[in-house]
Design a protein around this nucleic acid. Structure first.
Lengths: 170, 170
DNA sequence: TATTGTTATACTCTATAACTATA
DNA sequence: TATAGTTATAGAGTATAACAATA
């Protein structure tokens, strides 16, 4: 507690209509909080320290995308996965290349494109970051039974997939 | 489909260790995507159009916080709920006050503090926004059974609460 | 003529520092 | 002297526009 006047965790106000079986009104602020933690919050901050490279968030994110892909990626593909535009990625790659954390290789299939390939240190850096994030999730769910963890993974996966599919469709 | 070379939904690369019963490696990008959709993505963009006030995101967010609280809030309390610092909120409130969407009222309990109180149009604006967001969630989960919806709400609430508690604790 | 990537520039969101007024 | 809020300034993150090279 921080001494501030904050108590009401779920919906303080009357309903706005909408949700029936799921109390979105109560869920929305928590999802927002989660999103913030994952994008610019405490969690990411500490994981970046664990990565220990002095990189800023977007540059580190590029390394993480490459590590999760497990293979060199094009600039456009990285941009797509990060949900940003191309020029943004180009600048991060410039910085990463300067620090010898990635290399640019001309795509043999298409001379216009470049494949971004992490160096061993680039990969190691992403792994330190991911280890810190996963470690956090593991500790946060320490009190959960194995079955509940499985169910969470299943529901959460289905939920995000449906949401993402619907975003693309609507 | 957008014709791009994107197929692998779950982890492309070998495991980094960590998670046992939950595949965090597969979940992380989806949570990131969800967080982006909720913070600066397509979903929020369309909901802002629905609100139809010409406000930018942070200003609209202030109105949403007030609507969800269902009562006037102090500047500091709004900042806390939005996970931002005070001066940021002050500027949004300046803009909202100029547009007659909120009023500043001196807190009777403490002459230093101001209570931010939405006008009827300010409240209506937040409600149009929330209705659009909730409507989207409802449609995205149209294929879910009532029981699965309940389970989702339960797991998701518990998950975010544990994560947030752990963030505060660690 | 369409596509991949780069460079240069501008905009949005949020933080820090310095200050005012009340407690 | 501590706290609530404001003003002014600075920084991080991302987008748009104009361009080059290849397809």
């Amino acid at each position: 507690m921080d001494g501030n006047s904050r108590a009401r965790t779920s919906s303080d106000a009357t309903d706005t209509g909408g949700g029936g079986e799921v109390d979105f009104m109560a869920l929305l602020p928590r999802l927002a909080r989660l999103g913030t933690a994952l994008n610019r919050g405490d969690l990411v901050e500490r994981a970046m320290e664990a990565a220990g490279s002095g990189l800023d968030r977007p540059a580190l994110n590029v390394l993480v995308q490459l590590r999760m892909a497990g293979a060199p990626l094009r600039v456009g593909e990285i941009a797509h996965r990060m949900q940003v535009v191309g020029p943004h990625v180009t600048r991060q790659v410039n910085e990463l290349e300067r620090r010898l954390l990635v290399r640019r290789v001309v795509d043999p299939d298409d001379q216009r494109a470049r494949l971004i390939e992490p160096t061993p240190e680039g990969t190691a850096c992403a792994e330190r970051y991911l280890k810190a994030v996963f470690g956090f999730f593991d500790r946060a769910l320490a009190g959960w039974s194995a079955e509940d963890r499985r169910a969470l993974g299943s529901f959460l996966g289905r939920f995000t997939d449906d949401l993402i599919a619907h975003l693309a469709a609507e």
